[in-house]
Design a protein around this nucleic acid. Structure first.
Length: 157
DNA sequence: GCCAACGTTGGC
DNA sequence: GCCAACGTTGGC
């Protein structure tokens, strides 16, 4: 099983929104590196942190699981999807992929990025490195467990 | 709202 | 293939 971190701006989609649906197609990712992870590496049963970016409280909001592996993002084919529509993509040769995710648990409060940065185990994690803009990133098992342990210490789980 | 870091685009 | 210009991300 693999571990991941996936970012979303809570003003457009938050962990509370995820909790209210059976599953969610993680659409709209338009970055090749993130695309490759979703298309090639994410498997059913993998776990991912739900990260709130560009928000009042920045950090990890909870845990979700991957319930469907990579498949073409349908919004890229639909001109009505506006910003997500990609005229250079086609159903025969899709450019963008997504996975379906499912709610697992919400932390009682956001685990702040500032706290996560203090973990020595996270020094080699893309999340805490400067200029990182990856919205979907793999985590090492030690990253995952260090974050879970911190959440437990802070009684967020 | 600012701005540093980064990715993409397009002319050459 | 280079690289300047531009757009986006995302923390602060």
């Amino acid at each position: 099983m693999n571990y991941w971190l996936m970012k979303s701006e809570p003003s457009s989609f938050s962990i509370d929104d995820l909790q209210q649906v059976d599953f969610e197609p993680w659409d709209g990712v338009r970055n090749y590196q993130a695309r490759n992870f979703m298309r090639d590496d994410m498997k059913v049963g993998d776990k991912a942190f739900f990260y709130h970016s560009n928000a009042k409280k920045i950090g990890i909001a909870g845990v979700m699981s991957i319930v469907k592996a990579g498949y073409p993002d349908p919004t890229q084919f639909n001109p009505e999807c506006g910003y997500y529509y990609d005229p250079k993509s086609s159903e025969e040769n899709p450019r963008w992929y997504l996975v379906d995710v499912c709610f697992e648990q919400a932390f009682h409060d956001i685990l702040p990025l500032s706290e996560i940065k203090k973990l020595p185990e996270l020094d080699d994690c893309p999340l805490t490195q400067k200029g990182n803009r990856l919205s979907v990133m793999p985590l090492q098992e030690k990253h995952w467990h260090a974050i879970i342990t911190l959440a437990q210490q802070k009684q967020l789980i």
